[in-house]
């Protein structure tokens, strides 16, 4: 076997596997999945009266006492730069962030005095785009949202219970609620007055 022939074989081999794995495979999958699951394949985009208001899977910022808030994000909920803080467990900056967030919450909501906060409430996520919060976090926020919107608090609790995701088979994963779904449901029960 000459060197040149070995080289030519390797070139043919590289191009064949490239076309198969790098071009054909993704193209086939796009074609199949655009037909089978068009909603998910295009990013689980949620529309309200014909307008895309976000992706069910991507966190977005909510402000004010009338809405459920997602987790803090170190990338300002910008999907173009996903990521976490990458601060270590004994980082001074991490400590400052946590205490600032905790103080702000406790100042805005005096009812939180003496309450240990759910651990997802003031920690930033790994993706910076976490679309979910824990049920404890949601129930806590429901107290002041109910007050701000003038809704009975058991109506809020029912709303959360209706949108609660439970662990798979009662074992795998954690319970959570999706913030966008919750807020859109909230919008239906008590429309915003603009």
């Amino acid at each position: 076997m000459s060197r040149l022939e070995s080289f030519a074989t390797a070139v043919r081999f590289t191009l064949a596997t490239w076309i198969l794995c790098g071009l054909a495979y993704p193209a086939i999958e796009v074609a199949i999945n655009q037909v089978m699951f068009p909603f998910q394949a295009n990013g689980s985009l949620v529309q309200v009266s014909g307008k895309i208001v976000g992706s069910r899977l991507i966190g977005q910022r909510f402000l004010g006492a009338r809405w459920f808030h997602g987790r803090p994000s170190v990338v300002n909920d910008d999907p173009l730069t996903s990521g976490g803080s990458n601060l270590g467990p004994m980082s001074r900056r991490l400590k400052q962030h946590l205490i600032q967030r905790s103080m702000r919450l406790r100042k805005e909501h005096p009812g939180l005095r003496g309450v240990r906060l759910p651990s997802d409430m003031i920690t930033s996520s790994g993706s910076g785009l976490d679309p979910d919060i824990s049920p404890a976090n949601a129930y806590l926020q429901a107290r002041w949202i109910a007050r701000a919107r003038g809704l009975p608090s058991d109506a809020m609790d029912q709303l959360i219970a209706r949108h609660l995701h439970r662990p798979l088979l009662g074992l795998f994963g954690e319970p959570y609620v999706n913030v966008l779904t919750l807020n859109l449901a909230l919008m239906k029960t008590s429309p915003e007055v603009h």
């Binding site: 400590k95 946590l98 967030r101 651990s119 996520s125 824990s134 994963g173 319970p175």
Partner: peptide, 26 residues
């Protein structure tokens, strides 16, 4: 650091506890 900031450390009551810095709720 988390305990000092008033975060619940024990898992339960519908919240994950522990060290949720850089982790996802789901």
């Amino acid at each position: 650091v988390l305990a000092g900031a008033g975060v619940a450390i024990v898992h339960g009551g519908g919240q994950p506890g522990g060290n949720m810095v850089g982790k996802e709720v789901r």
